[in-house]
Every structure is written in structure tokens, then in C-alpha cells.
Design a protein around this nucleic acid. Sequence first.
DNA 1: CAAAACGGTAAGCCATGACTAACCATTAGC
DNA 2: GCTAATGGTTAGTCATGGCTTACCGTTTTG
Lengths: 108, 108
Amino acid sequence: MAYRSKAAVAALESLGDPTRRAIFERLSRGASAVGDLAANLPVTRAAVSQHLRVLKDAGLVTQSAQGTRRIYRIDPRGIGAMREWLDAHWVNALDAFKAFADAEETLK
Amino acid sequence: MAYRSKAAVAALESLGDPTRRAIFERLSRGASAVGDLAANLPVTRAAVSQHLRVLKDAGLVTQSAQGTRRIYRIDPRGIGAMREWLDAHWVNALDAFKAFADAEETLK
DNA sequence: CAAAACGGTAAGCCATGACTAACCATTAGC
DNA sequence: GCTAATGGTTAGTCATGGCTTACCGTTTTG
């Protein structure tokens, strides 16, 4: 589970940036090449390339070559890791909240 | 849905920071006062207070007074918004992936 | 093989934001 | 009412990281 949570942390870190979120959202609607992504964003191709590297290192996207074009697409595993992280903390939070509510109750 | 996704974005933005994640993880294991949080973190109380404000604005935590102490606890709604955001993009990604796989198939 | 298309990389600039120190406000307890 | 406890706020510093420009490598195409 340690490596899972590490993946989740990397994913959270990555999606904290607005531009990376924009890239991620675009890719979730379909795979795309670097230049095509950059054409629809207010930053240069170089910036997009750098962001894609971060997203890839975080396990959120995968890359495949098609001639000179690099096609990027969402890697569902990255989302999965985040979901697990969120769910774990959600369960914790609900337990803690329940305990809190019970304690409140017994005080009355 | 717009306001939901806005909440999700704020949550993602917040949890991009390591210190805020540490605070969030601690709170998911139980409510805590500002001073107690700071005592277990490598930053000052002031920094923790600032982070808590961000987390609160993002809908990830709630606050309640107990004497002079401010008790912070996880707000499950924040996590919920993030889950929805993730799930929406997950579905998109899976659809896109399926379409991609089908296209690959028809090429053979 | 030459030129074009496509992207990754390096160096450098600059803005954002995380942090601390100092101060102020509120509540509790003697 | 005075003191301690608790924490929010402000001003200012500094590092992180996002962006651009320029350059280089690879693959395709004529």
C-alpha cells in the first residue's frame, strides 16, 4: 500500500497545477499529441512537454509514439491510486466524525 | 455541477501542498486544535493556521470553538467533491480508452 | 539526402506562495 | 481585573517551480 499512497501523493501534487489539470482534463476527453494540446492552451509547446513529463512520472498519463508524434492518453491507474487515497481518508474521517457525534451525544 | 467541480478544483489545489496534506491526513485520524497540529509538524503555529484557512476555504475542513481552542475536523463534503471530479474524468478516460482500443481493432 | 514536422531538454527569468517573527484579539482561570 | 492560553493576522523574506527562448535529436517525406 505504501507504493500506492506514494503514487496518490504524486498524482495530487501534479494535479495541483492549473495547467496540468487543463491538460489532464483534455486528455480525459481523448488522447492527443503534444502540439495539439499546446495549440489549445495559453502556454508554449515546451511548457506542455514539461507538464506531460510530470504527469507521466506521476502515473497519470501514458505515452506512445506515432511517427514523430507522441500521443498522450490518461492512465486509469493514476486515478485509481488517488481514489484509494481519498477513500481511505474518507473512511477515517467518517469514523472520526461518528465518534465525535457519539461523544457529543453522551454529554447530553 | 459547476459549483461542485469548482469545489473539487479548490480541493485539488489545496492538497497539492505537502504540509496541507500532512494536516489533512492528521485530521482524518481525528479532530485537533491548531496548537496540537503545529506541535507535530515542522512548521510554526502561524503557518498551520494559514494552511487551515486554505483548507477551510476549499471545503475540506470545518472549524468549531471550544473555549479558546479552535477544533478542526475533516469535512467529508470536500472529499466527496474530489471523488466526483475524479470519477467523471475516470469515466471519460475509460470511454476514450475503449474507443481507442476499438479503433486499433478495426485497423487489423 | 535535404527539408520539414514534431518534441524533448537546458538555461535563465520571474511570480507565486510557504514560512517566520511580531503583534493583536478573545476566552479561561485565579 | 490580571495573567495565561490559544490562535488569527500582517509584513516581509526566500525558495520553489512554471514559463519562455533557443537548441538539438529523431522521424517522415519529397
